[in-house]
Design a binder for these strands. Sequence first.
DNA 1: TTTTATGTATTATATATACTAATACAAATA
DNA 2: TATTTGTATTAGTATATATAATACATAAAA
Lengths: 126, 126
Amino acid sequence: MIISLELDSETPLYEQLRNQIVIGIAMGTLAEQERLPSVRQLAEDLGINTMTVNKTYALLKQEGYIVIDRRHGAKVAPRAAVGQEPTEQLTHQLQLIIAQAAIQGVDQSRFQTLCGQIFAKMAYQT
Amino acid sequence: MIISLELDSETPLYEQLRNQIVIGIAMGTLAEQERLPSVRQLAEDLGINTMTVNKTYALLKQEGYIVIDRRHGAKVAPRAAVGQEPTEQLTHQLQLIIAQAAIQGVDQSRFQTLCGQIFAKMAYQT
DNA sequence: TTTTATGTATTATATATACTAATACAAATA
DNA sequence: TATTTGTATTAGTATATATAATACATAAAA
């Protein structure tokens, strides 16, 4: 899996890394139960500090996206059951995005189409 | 317009304030051309510093959500033309949210329904 | 003209966060 | 035993956040 970090971005490195791994899981680039690189390996590959990667892994673990076994390292968590209700946090994030879209002049049908296109790229549920 | 800030949140105050104003504009709580409170007034009402509010206004101005006239203060910007294409930034934000939703087990139809419900609350385009 | 209110700029301070660095530890495998 | 795993600790530096106290230019209102 290819990861590219922007060192001059306002988004913290550990958060950029977290986001790209989440998208990787959803798109199937990282398969279920697949093992992630070790914190040392990934830190070396990306040219960043070990503790920054560790912070990302701790965050992903706390959010339930990965599972950490001291024996085998970090793995992608088993799939959740389908048909779940959206989290309140997710609903709030979506509300903010839709508010911005509406103000910027993106109408609902265009927005829904975009959602469909993005969902089509997510191999997680198929 | 009612604004509530969480002082113990991880989200900076100026960003919380910015988000609530954006949602207020989209939902029609803040009408087009409507004048926002002065930075001093809003800072006093919320019990925060003047410069924090000023930072929010500067951000909203830079993003095009409000217009600032030195004579009359800050106003909600005129409406954008409808039928605009989604920004690349907006697309990326949406991609991340959909990735999280997919992993959490929210299927596409449920997600689309939620989008529709949120859009229905946005009085901006109607 | 004077007063008032607007956003904005400046300077300073305190606190929290982000990132790096160098070690070290417990656990488990080869 | 040696190696690899995530994790903890301690330290240092840089940046971001928020507050505080003033001050300024602009323009409306008295």
